[in-house]
Write a protein that binds this DNA or RNA. Structure first.
Length: 527
RNA sequence: GGCCGCGUACCAAAGUGGUUGAAUGGAGCGGAUUGCAAAUCCGCUGAGCGUAAGCUCCUCGCCGGUUCGAAUCCGGCCGCGGCCUCCA
């Protein structure tokens, strides 16, 4: 059964049929870089990554696919938003404070109190929005690569795969001009200080993606659209394309005056620049569920207004939000983790990645420490298979879908709207039956892991001392070493009472021990 | 008010008309192993009767319906969540 995906645009499961399977075009709304990305951000990016990997996998089956034998390629583009949008976007992106400026203040505070994140270039200038953006962008890329986000890895050799709005201002201006000339946008205000709005009433399909048609918006505005700042708009739902504002922290020259672009236009432009085909369409577009409205609705209005076509992205993919320990994540509650927070706790990238991808993308996954531990164990089990099998001398034939029930069932699950939990069930049942892994087992696992992307990730290094082996990136510690030495002596003297006390003491300090062959002790963090 | 989604056993999570008392992972219990642990491996984990094979009863939010047959389809109800111009 070929791959079927839930398309938010049609609100149903449909066969995924790219225009050219040998070159599938996929645009993902990426991070904004005025802070570190958290696990919620990464869940949606990784969901897109798994989808991309699945389409590229030879295990995946597509309807009407002439590229099946020659291989499919996904051109995946993810932007990095380095323009600071407004903190108060309730009126369409014109009010409040620029987020990049807010980030600058935060960094300045941190710098004063000596609390800049470890490894920060001390020359970082918190008053310069471009350096702030660069600072967080490089941290994002670092995290993303550790988590195996393929687009971030690809972008190392082809940076155009991760475009930045600040580099695309001329193209945005051109699209805005096109929209004005086609009657989809209008400028208001005195020359040189103009504001350009999209005219939603010029685009009848507005609301098709989100259900927020102009009628629904009118009746359900809920009082959030005030009269203030609406005066110049033709319709309350008209949204900002350009705002001339010479006092703004980041600004560029434009026909309407020096200022900044609206926050929807960048994605329309960047998707078109790198991906659009001769019809101005792309195959796939993803973003967190909160992007459905207004962001993606507005992107469609912009792109289709510009191209005159009915479609922008043929399939819209919207992963749902992540909860943390059962609660909705929110910055004010502080119940969120950045990827870096977790790395710092010694949790390895593979466990984080698996925990973030193992729940179906269209349900609200719940991120828990218990879940991370579960994922870690799964990873370790799979690793044992590939490690043992890797040293086997059996000839490793490339696994063929038709010869392997595991691969077939795995593919069947994945083809059904990326049923990854079902697919993991298949994988684990199979893994559980393997006592003596062979090279062909390893090949099967490798084929699966090219989709899951967990086994290829870096494994924290172990550091060995005379007595102990420190796992999970732990560094040898004098206190621990002393207790280990004493414990070793106690055990040699068969003073097990003392040796157990020492083990308890270490446990209280957060270290878990495991006696291994050769008299050494493995030390890992208590989960 | 509009649009969308969800409710499965201790937890997470598959399953979407029969082979399902319900995959898989965790947790729990028992066993192997260990000085003891940890890790690993094996077995068990709704209830009742039985030495056993097995039989009976109750299960997938609740109520009702369709069907020879429903966790799976239909209707109603209850509960939870998301979006509706900050957010992945």
């Amino acid at each position: 059964m070929p791959l079927r995906l839930y398309n938010s645009l049609s609100r149903q499961l449909e066969p995924f049929t790219p225009r050219d399977p040998s070159r599938v075009t996929f645009y993902s709304c990426g991070p904004t870089v005025y802070d570190d990305a958290h696990v919620g951000n990464f869940r949606s990016f990784l969901a897109a990554d798994v989808l991309r990997r699945w389409i590229e996998s030879p295990l995946c089956d597509l309807q009407n696919d002439p590229a099946k034998s020659t291989g499919r390629k996904v051109v995946h583009v993810m932007n990095i938003t380095d323009v600071g949008h407004m903190t108060d976007d309730a009126e369409g992106g014109e009010n409040g404070e620029d987020r990049m400026a807010v980030a600058g203040k935060r960094l300045l505070e941190a710098k004063k109190s000596g609390k800049l994140p470890a490894g920060t270039d001390t020359n970082l200038d918190p008053t310069n929005p471009y350096t702030i953006a660069e600072f967080y962008a490089s941290r994002f890329l670092e995290d993303a690569r550790r988590l195996g986000l393929k687009v971030a890895l690809d972008a190392q050799s082809d940076p155009t795969l991760m475009p930045r709005p600040t580099q695309c201002i001329p193209q945005m201006i051109a699209m805005i001009q096109s929209l004005i000339s086609k009657g989809h946008a209008y400028a208001v205000g005195p020359a040189g200080r103009q504001v350009v709005y999209y005219d939603v009433q010029s685009f009848p399909a507005y609301g098709r993606l989100s259900g927020n048609t102009l009628d629904n918006l009118r009746s359900g505005a809920g009082g959030r659209i005030s009269d203030e700042n609406q005066g110049q708009k033709k319709h309350p739902a008209d949204f900002l394309l350009w705002k001339a504002d010479p006092s703004h922290i980041m600004k560029w020259d434009s026909p309407w005056g020096a200022g900044y672009p609206g926050w929807h236009i960048e994605c329309s432009v960047m998707a078109a620049m790198r991906l659009a085909d001769d019809l101005g369409e792309i195959d796939l577009h993803s973003g967190g569920e909160d992007n459905v409205f207004p962001h993606h609705e507005c992107e469609i209005a912009q792109t289709c207004g510009h191209t005159g076509r009915e479609l922008f992205a043929r399939t819209w993919f919207h992963p749902r939000h992540l909860f943390i320990e059962g609660a909705k994540m929110s910055k004010s509650k502080g119940n969120f983790y950045t990827a870096r927070d977790l790395f710092a706790k010694g949790i390895e990238p593979a466990a984080i990645r698996l925990e973030l991808i193992r729940t179906h993308y269209r349900t609200n996954a719940n991120f828990t420490m218990q879940g991370v531990t579960d994922s870690q164990r799964m990873v370790e089990r799979w690793r044992r298979i590939s490690a043992v099998a890797g040293t086997s001398t059996n000839a490793a034939a490339a696994p063929r879908l038709d010869d392997s029930p595991v691969l077939r069932e795995f593919a069947q699950a994945m083809n059904e709207d990326l049923n990854i939990a079902g697919a993991l069930g298949v994988l684990n049942s199979w893994a559980g039956t393997i006592t003596q892994p062979t090279a062909s087992d390893a090949a099967i696992l490798a084929a699966i892991d090219r989709v899951l992307g967990v086994l290829a990730l870096e494994v924290p290094k172990a550091t060995a001392t005379e007595i102990g082996v420190y796992l999970g990136g732990l560094s040898p510690d004098p206190t621990v070493e002393a207790k280990l030495a004493e414990r070793k002596a106690a055990r040699a003297a068969k003073d097990f009472k003392r040796s157990d006390e020492l083990r308890d003491e270490l446990l209280a300090l957060g270290y878990q021990l495991k006696d291994v062959a050769g008299g050494k002790v493995e030390i890992s963090r208590k989960p």
